Simulated assay, not measured.
Amino acid sequence: MATGIFYPTYLANSGLKTNIFKIHPRSLWIVGVVVIFSTLVKIGAVMLPASYFDVPLRQAFVLGLILNSKGITELVLTDQEFFALVMISVVLITAVVTPLIRYLYDPSKQYAVMRRSTIQHLKRESELTILACIHNQENVPTFINVLEVSNAT
Rank of each mutant, 00 (worst) to 15 (best):
E74M: 12
L63A: 12
N68D: 04
Q110H: 01
R58L: 12
I134S: 15
L75M: 08
S108C: 06
I88G: 07
L92V: 06
I101E: 14
A60Q: 07
L100K: 01
R58F: 09
P141D: 06
T129H: 08
E138S: 14
V86Q: 07
A60F: 01
S108W: 00
T73Q: 10
K70E: 14
L100M: 15
S69Q: 03
V86I: 12
L77E: 04
R102S: 13
L131D: 14
I88M: 08
K70P: 00
K123A: 10
T73V: 11
F83P: 04
V86M: 06
E138Q: 13
P99A: 06
A84V: 00
N139C: 09
M114P: 03
N139W: 08
L92K: 11
P141T: 07
V86F: 01
H135K: 14
Q59N: 13
V86D: 05
A132M: 15
L63S: 06
F82L: 13
Q110R: 06
T94R: 01
T118M: 11
V62K: 09
V86A: 12
D106V: 05
T142F: 03
I134F: 00
V97W: 00
Q59V: 12
E127W: 00
E81S: 08
L104G: 07
Q120D: 10
T73I: 03
I93P: 06
L77I: 10
S108D: 07
L63Y: 09
T98C: 12
N136E: 12
G71W: 03
A132K: 14
N136P: 11
F82E: 15
V96G: 00
C133F: 02
V113Y: 04
T73S: 08
L100A: 13
P141H: 07
V62T: 14
I88P: 09
N139T: 10
I134R: 02
D106T: 11
S89M: 08
F83Q: 12
D106G: 02
N139Q: 15
N136C: 14
A60E: 01
K109T: 07
S89C: 14
E81K: 12
E127M: 11
Q110G: 11
A84T: 01
Q120F: 09
L63G: 08
S126I: 08
R116M: 14
D106H: 02
A95Q: 04
N68I: 02
E74Q: 08
A95T: 10
A112R: 09
V90Y: 02
I119R: 03
S117H: 01
V140W: 01
I134Q: 09
A84W: 00
I119C: 01
I66L: 06
L122I: 03
V90W: 00
H135T: 11
A84C: 05
L63V: 11
V140L: 10
N139V: 03
E138A: 15
K70D: 13
T129L: 10
